[in-house]
Design a protein around this nucleic acid. Structure first.
Length: 332
DNA sequence: AAAAATGATTTACT
DNA sequence: AGTAAATCATTTTT
C-alpha cells in the first residue's frame, strides 16, 4: 500500500489497461488544457486506486462518493463516452446466436433416457420401482429391475441434481453480482445495457460449459454403472431346488411336447417364484440340453416319470392305473 | 484349479 | 413372436 507502487501518474497521455494511449481531451472551455489534463489525471488516478487497492468497505464508499461528486466528473464521463464510441465497434460483432450444441443435446437426451435428468420416477421402495417398471415396459425382467442398480442410479441422479443446482445458484449469484457491479460502475463510466447483457451471456456460457462437464461425467458414470450391471445381469443365481423340481416335473411329464403355453409358463413362474421369461429360458436350455445327451438325461427322465407315476398312483389310490404313457414317452 | 452345471444372452431362422 | 443353437459368465461340483 505504499505510494511507491504508483505506476500510472503520467501527466500527458494516460495508458489504459490494454496499454493504449488515451487521447488527450479538450472540452473547449476556457480553462487551460494543462490544468484540465491534470484534473482528469487525478480522477483517473483515484479510480485506479480504488480498483487496485483492496480498501475496506467504508473507505471505498467514501472515496467513491467524493469521486462521484467531483466537479469534473461529468466531463470525465463524456470523455469515456467518446472513447467508447470509438472502441465499441470492436466489441459489437460478437452477438451471433449459437445453435444448440449437438453434443450437449446428445448428453441431455441420454440423461433423460436413463432417468437421471427429467422427471423423478420410481423413487420409493424397490417393490414400487418394480411395479412401475413392469407397468411401463413390456419387458418386465429384461428391464433393469435390480434394486441395486436403481439405488446406484438414484445416487447418481441425486448427485447430478445437487451439483446442477449448485451450479445454477452460483451462476445466478455471480451474474447478479456482476450486473450490480456494472450498474454501479455505470455511474462513473458509460455502460450500455447491451454490454451488461453481453456480459451475462458470457457468464452463462461459461457456466454452461461447466454444466456440460457435469453432464458428461454423469453420463460416463451411468455408462460405467450400466455396463457393469448389464454384465452383472448375467450374474445369475441358481433357482431354488424346489423351483428346479417343479420345472423338471413339468418338463418330463410333457416330454412329448415340452413347450408350455403362455398360461402354463405363467403358472410355473408363479409357483417357482421366477419370471415368465426365466421359465422360457429354462425350457429353452432344458430342451436343447436334453436333446444333446439323451442318454444321460434318460435317468433323470425315468426318475421324474417314476415320480409322477407314483404321485398319480397315490392320487388314484393303490389300485389306480399307472400312467404308463408318461413312462413310455419318457423312454422314447 | 479344472470341469461340469446352469441361467442368460445372442444370433439366425421361421 | 417363439424357438434352436451357440455362446457367455457365473456358480457348483469334482
Amino acid at each position: 500500500m505504499e505510494d511507491g507502487q504508483r505506476m500510472y501518474s503520467q501527466q500527458g497521455g494516460l495508458t489504459n489497461m490494454s496499454g493504449n494511449v488515451l487521447p488527450q481531451y479538450n472540452m473547449g472551455q476556457d480553462e487551460p488544457s494543462d490544468q484540465r489534463k491534470q484534473e482528469i489525471g487525478d480522477i483517473l488516478q483515484q479510480i485506479m486506486t480504488i480498483t487496485d487497492q483492496s480498501l475496506d468497505e467504508a473507505q471505498a464508499r467514501c472515496r467513491k462518493h467524493t469521486l462521484n461528486c467531483h466537479r469534473m466528473k461529468p466531463a470525465l464521463f463524456s470523455v469515456l463516452c467518446e472513447i467508447k464510441e470509438k472502441t465499441v465497434l470492436s466489441i459489437r460483432n460478437s452477438q451471433e446466436e449459437e445453435p444448440p450444441d449437438p453434443q450437449l443435446m446428445r448428453l441431455d437426451n441420454m440423461l433423460i433416457a436413463e432417468g437421471v435428468a427429467g422427471p423423478e420416477k420410481g423413487g420409493g421402495s424397490s417393490a414400487a420401482a418394480n411395479a412401475t417398471a413392469a407397468a411401463s415396459g413390456g419387458q418386465p425382467d429384461s428391464a433393469i429391475e435390480h434394486s441395486d442398480y436403481r439405488a446406484k442410479l438414484a445416487q447418481i441422479r441425486q448427485i447430478y441434481h445437487t451439483e446442477l443446482e449448485k451450479y445454477e445458484q452460483a451462476c445466478n449469484e455471480f451474474t447478479t453480482h456482476v450486473v450490480n457491479l456494472l450498474r454501479e460502475q455505470s455511474r462513473t463510466r458509460p455502460i450500455a445495457p447491451k454490454e451488461i447483457e453481453r456480459m451475462v451471456t458470457i457468464i452463462r456460457k461459461k457456466f454452461a460449459a461447466i454444466e456440460m462437464q457435469l453432464k458428461q461425467s454423469t453420463c460416463e458414470a451411468v455408462m460405467i454403472l450400466r455396463s457393469r450391471f448389464l454384465d452383472a445381469r448375467r450374474k445369475r443365481r441358481n433357482f431354488s431346488k424346489q423351483a428346479t423340481e417343479l420345472l423338471n416335473e413339468y418338463f418330463y411329464s410333457h416330454l412329448s411336447n415340452p413347450y408350455p403355453s403362455e398360461e402354463a409358463k405363467e403358472e410355473l413362474a408363479r409357483k417357482c417364484g421366477i419370471t415368465v421369461s426365466q421359465v422360457s429360458n429354462w425350457f429353452g436350455n432344458k430342451r436343447i440340453r436334453y436333446k444333446k445327451n439323451i442318454n444321460k438325461a434318460q435317468e433323470e427322465a425315468n426318475m421324474y416319470a417314476a415320480k409322477t407315476a407314483a404321485a398319480a398312483a397315490a392320487n388314484v389310490g393303490p389300485e389306480g392305473g399307472i400312467p404308463w404313457t408318461c413312462i413310455i414317452l419318457a423312454l422314447l
